[in-house]
Design a protein around this nucleic acid. Structure first.
Lengths: 212, 212
DNA sequence: GCGCGCTGAATCGCCGTTCAGTCACAGCGG
DNA sequence: CCGCTGTGACTGAACGGCGATTCAGCGCGC
């Protein structure tokens, strides 16, 4: 418990608040990822963040709210990036591929965050679940939209519900991520899995067209 | 707290144990499904099973072990049934379709069990996770085998890893089940989703064959 | 009578949360 | 310039509630 004042941040900052809050969030991601929400002690997060236990309560109302804020913060950020990525791609199928790459890429890059999202998304109380599904739905809607647009453009078969495809695709990605997050660290494995998934899904979504 | 002795089970049984044990397991499924593992109180499970709190500890070492046993018991049973179902179907693609129907059908029929498996599978401590992945792997292996066999028989494209496909497929099913379990009760919805998923997946796994 | 299966109130440890202080600094008056 | 005091961020030991687990006893069937 020695170093603490190494922040100092000049003096320009009216309050270094944002700094500490972010520090706590980062620590929470790490700790939750390692042990899961319920097995994680607030004191551990505090230690990992280099703050006192009580400090956490200056920034979050409760442990629950900490997790909630974490989702809010990170998923909002993800959605923004993903939306921009998608807009930059014109072709429907390419967009689907982009989503797959994006999600798996993210997970490969931020393993802890991946674990928190995929594992803890289903933890906590109904409270959290209800919250989570809100943000979560936004994500699914985005995927469903991409698929529906592509269907309208005649790029994909139209006899399947975009919503169902979106859910299944998300699940597939989640499943790949989960086994990867829990098991073998094999680098690049996710990318390979993503490519194969995209190949299968896109062939599966092709219009039966050319044959007839 | 009145009825309790209605079991009696002749007298053939050296111990009516299995009876009470099963009763506790059933209650646990129900309670865990409704509130999640951590939010469930042992006393609630006891009440739901119509036994005293202490009785649970005559059959299970701890709350954790109760959950573990539950998985062990139910998933083993599922695996047995699924294996038999698959053997009864000769064609590879039909087998895949069968797996999809089976898993979603199960979930539709036993909603509580579905929720426990899909939601709680990711809860608890690492301890459970490690256990879960053991049984879980068996399930995935079964799927991977079916796919690999079909590939060898020339029924499916061979440029994708059976293991990856199995994981993704499981994830997709899990994803469909999850949104279904948490959200709309819309009956038959799962069946429709299953059909569409099968259509897409099977088309996606077709050999590019006929064209060339 | 005896043992066994069961009971459920009491125990006990744990951990989220609180809050009385500490510390660093800034402003201010002398 | 310097010391004094007010302010607010931060600390971390202590509190209190909760709930998993225990175990002293109870009664039924033999």
């Amino acid at each position: 418990m020695t170093e603490r004042r190494f922040s100092a941040r000049k003096r320009d900052e009216p309050r270094a608040a944002g700094d500490k809050r972010e520090r706590i969030l980062r620590a929470a991601v790490k700790v939750f990822a390692r042990k899961g929400f319920y097995a994680s002690r607030v004191s551990e997060i505090a230690k990992a963040a280099g703050v006192a236990d009580g400090t956490i309560y200056l920034y979050f109302k409760s442990k629950d709210e900490l997790l909630t804020s974490l989702f809010e913060d990170r998923i909002t950020r993800l959605l923004d990036v993903l939306r921009r990525e998608i807009e930059a791609v014109p072709s429907g199928p390419d967009r689907v591929r982009r989503i797959i790459e994006f999600q798996l890429g993210l997970l490969e890059g931020e393993r802890d965050l991946a674990e928190v999202i995929t594992v803890n998304l289903r933890q906590s109380t109904r409270l959290l679940k209800q919250y989570a599904t809100k943000r979560f739905t936004e994500y699914l809607d985005l995927m469903a939209h991409v698929i529906a647009d592509a269907q309208h453009a005649g790029e994909l078969r139209t006899d399947v519900s975009p919503r169902i495809v979106a859910r299944a695709l998300f699940g597939a990605l989640d499943g790949l991520a989960l086994t990867w997050a829990l098991g073998n660290p094999e680098p690049g494995g996710l990318k390979r899995a993503g490519t194969q998934l995209a190949d299968v899904v896109l062939q599966g979504l092709e219009r039966r067209g050319p044959a007839a």
